[in-house]
Design a binder for these strands. Structure first.
Length: 747
RNA sequence: GCUGCUGUAGCUCAGUCGGUAGAGCGCGUCCUUGGUAAGGACGAGGUCAAGGGUUCAAGUCCCUUCAGCAGCUCCA
């Protein structure tokens, strides 16, 4: 007997052989039909799993039971995982020689990785879905059984499922017994849980196919990953598909092109953004806004060049560490190779000469050496022949070495800057610093270049030249807490100013077991405590991620949710104990001895490219007045009022507005339609009546015709809206985001 | 970078079996001079991503390159 406590507190008794589904049956036939899975003491299990298999023998306290139906998001994950099995079964029926890899659930559905001889194409989806429908209609149950590992191994070998065999021997080698699920002819190694039978899947769809690798390893066997999704109802599925359509309509690449915001041209380079006038206006407005705010908060704007000597980034550690994702250094001279070789050889000769008794013999060798060098360096290029001549002209080894060393020292290589911090560190270092001058806050919209893998590039969201709204705060360890607090406050202010209110913070701290971190134990402890304290005090929603800290310090990332419910990682605040060390930064403390400052990197927008890209999608292109590249379109009723409209446009520009006069030969309706489609916040119609009265007929993009008002009144109205940075409307998606599923089922 | 898919006018797309390139929107000119989401007529616009191959003949079939998309892997 097992005692089972229901959510309402009632206790019922069940046999060990009975299952949650049996309990549901006792409570009512409708409930039984609705049950998809169960939770016993918080663990999600098959609804048909007997209590005896789940509850430890001899348990006499009542176990808590929740019956999961389509009202519980946990059940959605179970449903989807079962749908993944159904899809795999369908694929195995349709394609011979399918090898199954993993088939877990994801936030919005599921996938299954297959190894099969021919590629699955989108044209195949209909057939796969039809086969899935047959399986669902048959409504066969999912039956669980366990096998001891040896039997499980031979069982999978019998099924010719090599990946499963490998997985049992690898990732699951600690498991003494292994779970399987059978559904008709289909059997899969799986820990479950599953829904009672396939008939419970009311809505599903094969979504896309893509490449993947066994165990996510680039070198691993290539697989085909078939994505699908499943929902409790057709309605939920349709809502989900509609949301995907909405996201497509909002795609910043589409809107950016249509609205003339930016352009990326293969002749310029992949991932290099051309900011067209309208996009540049949005970015410029944001930059101006932020810069003003920064100055108010004691930051000092600086500028630094786009390139610097390679050695700067060798000092900072960026070049050696991220070499693969940087543009190659400039000024690579192929002559360097032979010069270095000869330099090393000459040093040997020199040492030999000074140590040797037979000085003449060494000198004889040196003669041969000159010949060899002429062949090697002299014949290399015009530059090489000049250099070789100079080297030959030097009689002593010291002299030759000097000439080569001088040449080598002149071979400066330069790198497009991958980070702004080394430049700012050098600014810090440009003069002695006292604790009295700290914190020093250097701010720059600094463009950095990173050679991201071609497959990663994505419109403005992932680019190869990006402009960080960067700043570096150099402060004493005691000041870290206050600086972090101020930075949080600033980031908050900035996000709220563009109408982003839904965000959370991820605090990334050390993995206490790892030794990959730089900086003293004490510094880390203080820093993490300070960050956590400030975050707690701030009342912000934050989670701590252990082991996610950078090797040089803890960080706090801002995760922002947009109008479609998608989460974006934007701003970041990072503490750094490493760079001050590497650059030997110091300040003189009150005790008149040198100390090492702490550096804080922070970027509330992240990068201008990514931030503006996100904003385009968030607003669906309909920017609030203060950000709109074109704020007002002045519409003369006919050519007769063109001049009046011009005058009004000029006045609006004088008043600081971005206004354009539409003098096309078209009817008012057509001009209005065009302005509406261009998402212009306000239209000022100027006809003979308005011209005579010094007025404009204001049309609001959102509200429509507001009637005529004196130009001054209209200006005041709009100015108030700009000054308050009012966000009047965030284009809402037509549907609400559908709940995401729970944990992934990995096998 | 890897796997798969795609590339036709400024944009969105059609183009059958390999046989001289099409539409809508946009653009230009003219007519029209208008009151809150499309007035009309005419016209210009193409090395079918680039290069190579097969063929009497290639937008169409094959190969290579480039670019884009989706996913994987990466992200200071």
């Amino acid at each position: 007997m097992v005692r089972v406590e229901l959510p309402d507190g009632a206790i019922v008794e069940a046999e060990e052989t009975e299952s949650p589904l049996d309990i549901a049956g006792r409570l009512g036939a409708r409930l039984k039909a609705a049950v998809l899975a169960a939770q016993i003491d918080g663990t999600t299990v098959d609804a048909v799993r007997p209590f005896g298999e789940v509850v430890a023998a001899g348990t006499d306290r009542p176990v808590k039971l929740r019956l999961l139906t389509d009202r519980d998001t946990e059940a959605l994950g179970v449903l989807r995982h079962s749908a993944a099995h159904v899809m795999a079964r369908a694929v195995m029926r349709l394609f011979p020689d399918v090898q199954l890899a993993f088939g877990p659930t994801t936030a919005s559905g599921f996938y299954y990785d297959f190894d099969l001889p021919r590629p699955i194409r989108e044209e195949d989806f209909a057939a796969i879905e039809a086969e899935m429908k047959r399986i669902v209609d048959d409504a066969e149950p999912f039956e669980r059984f366990n096998l001891p590992r040896e039997e499980a191994l031979s069982f999978c070998e019998g099924l010719k499922q090599g990946f499963k065999v490998e997985h049992i021997g690898g990732g699951l080698k600690e498991h003494p017994t292994l779970g399987f699920y059978r559904q008709g002819e289909f059997v899969d190694l799986c820990r479950g849980p599953h829904i009672p039978d396939a008939g419970r899947i009311k809505a599903f769809k094969v979504v896309s196919v893509a490449g993947a690798h066994w165990k996510g390893d680039q070198g691993g066997r290539p697989l085909q990953r078939l994505y699908g999704t499943a929902f409790f109802s057709k309605k939920d599925l349709d809502a989900y598909l509609e949301q995907i359509e909405e996201a497509k309509r909002r795609d910043h690449r589409v809107l950016g092109k249509r609205m003339g915001l930016f352009h990326i041209d293969p002749d310029v380079g992949q991932g290099l953004v051309l900011w067209l006038p309208k996009g540049a206006m949005i970015r410029g407005t944001l930059e101006e806004f932020l810069k003003k705010e920064l100055i108010r908060r004691g930051y000092e704007p600086v500028y630094s060049p786009h390139i610097a000597k390679l050695s700067l980034y060798e000092t900072s550690g960026h070049f050696p560490h991220y070499r693969e994702s940087q543009f190659p250094p400039m000024g690579d001279n192929a002559l360097e190779e032979p010069v270095k070789r000869h330099f090393a050889y000459l040093e040997v000769l020199k040492n030999w000469y000074s140590a040797s008794e037979d000085k003449d013999g060494v000198l004889a060798s040196a003669k041969n050496y000159d010949e060899a060098m002429q062949k090697d360096i002299g014949a290399f290029s015009a530059e090489g022949s000049k250099l070789a001549e100079k080297v030959s002209a030097e009689p002593s080894f010291e002299g030759k070495l000097f000439v080569l060393r001088l040449w080598l020292s002149e071979q400066d290589k330069y790198l497009l800057k991958p980070m702004n911090c080394p430049h700012h560190a050098m600014m810090y270092k440009s003069r002695p610093r006292s604790y009295k001058q700290l914190p020093l806050r250097l701010a720059e919209f600094g463009t950095v270049y990173r050679h991201e893998q071609s497959g990663e590039l994505n419109g403005m969201l992932r680019v190869r030249g990006l402009t960080q709204d960067d700043a570096h705060l150099f402060c004493t360890p005691e000041q870290v807490e206050q600086e972090f607090r101020d930075t949080l406050e600033l980031t908050r202010f900035v996000l709220e100013s563009v109408g982003l209110h839904d965000y959370r913070v991820q605090l990334s701290v050390r993995d206490p077991g790892s030794d990959k971190y730089v900086g003293s134990e004490e510094n880390w402890a203080t820093a993490e405590a300070a960050l956590r304290k400030v975050l707690t005090e701030s009342g912000l929603n934050f989670v701590t991620a252990e082991g996610e800290a950078a090797f040089y310090g803890p960080k706090a990332d801002f995760m922002v949710r947009d109008a479609l419910g998608r989460e974006w990682q934007l701003g970041t605040v990072q503490l750094d104990y490493n760079l001050p060390e590497r650059f030997g930064l110091e300040y003189i403390g009150a005790d008149n001895t040198p100390h090492r400052p702490v550096m804080i990197h922070r970027a509330p927008f992240g990068s201008m490219e990514r931030f503006v890209g996100m904003l385009i999608e968030h607003f669906a292109g309909a920017f609030p007045l203060w950000l709109a590249p074109e704020q007002i379109r002045v519409l003369p009723l006919s050519e007769k009022t063109n001049e009046d409209a011009d005058r009004i446009t000029a006045k609006l520009r004088d008043a600081g507005f971005r206004a354009v006069c539409d003098k096309q030969d078209a009817k008012l309706q057509a001009k209005i339609r065009e302005a509406q489609l261009d998402l212009i916040p306000y239209m000022f119609v100027v006809g003979p009546k308005e011209a005579a009265a010094g007025a404009v007929a204001v049309r609001d993009r959102i509200e429509g015709d507001l009637g005529a008002m004196p130009l001054e009144a209209a200006i005041e109205k709009l100015r108030a809206e700009v000054d308050a940075r009012t966000v009047r409307q965030v284009a809402k998606p037509s549907t609400v985001a559908v709940a995401s599923a729970g944990e992934a089922n990995e096998y």
